[in-house]
Design a binder for these strands. Structure first.
Lengths: 106, 106
DNA sequence: GATGTATTTTGCTATTTTGCCAAATAAGCA
DNA sequence: TGCTTATTTGGCAAAATAGCAAAATACATC
């Protein structure tokens, strides 16, 4: 495979990979509603705060979310609402998967 | 987090995860053009055939691709062309990332 | 500067992923 | 049946990921 093409695919895969975790998808859903800080997310999720902090860093590193400091608090928000478009895409795949399994049962 | 919600997120994350690899994205792009067998994909990618076979299995397990046996050959194809919609989504995120970095330089 | 609150980083372990190689399986044909 | 081609599976090592707990950092206030 051509190096140029591989680099492009790697960049795309990076974004998908950053989103590919249930906790991180939860974070994105919550951020789509309103900005949150680590503490708020931790409370809603129920894991160690350091774990959530790392998940936030994964999303931030890929440019999917943004942080904004307000005093001692750091608020995170979506870099772009387009992230929500992914849901329609995923839903499409899930639906076609369901349809297929249904047709196997016929 | 509520168990129901977590399960849903897990299903979505599974699909994203299956796609989150440059080689697997390459495979999806090629399959969008036409069906391929493992040998053809291996040649285009340049890796061990067993490696590609495993990547195909990852995509198949999530129901993203399909296989169809034709004699000794097994041809793979996309379960649903909607997979291509992901590209627009990813591109949107990449663009917002680029815009942001550009604005930092101003 | 000292203290308290919010957050990240480090250290550690367990698990998963990736990729090659060799061995096993599947189907077609002499 | 035996041989060939196409493909998958098992084994293994290296690398990446995830999660908790403890230590470190950042900012605000006293």
């Amino acid at each position: 495979m051509d190096v140029q093409r591989y680099k492009k695919l790697e960049a795309r895969a990076g974004i998908l990979k950053a989103m590919a975790h249930p906790t991180r998808l939860f974070i994105l859903e919550e951020l789509a509603e309103r900005k949150h800080n680590v503490g708020e997310l931790t409370e809603k999720i129920g894991a160690d705060i350091s774990t959530i902090s790392k998940h936030l860093n994964v999303l931030k590193s890929e440019g999917i979310i943004h942080d904004e400091r307000m005093g001692t608090n750091i608020y995170y928000h979506l870099s772009c609402p387009c992230v929500l478009n992914f849901y329609q895409c995923v839903e499409g795949v899930i639906k076609s998967k369901a349809d297929e399994q249904a047709s196997l049962l016929k």
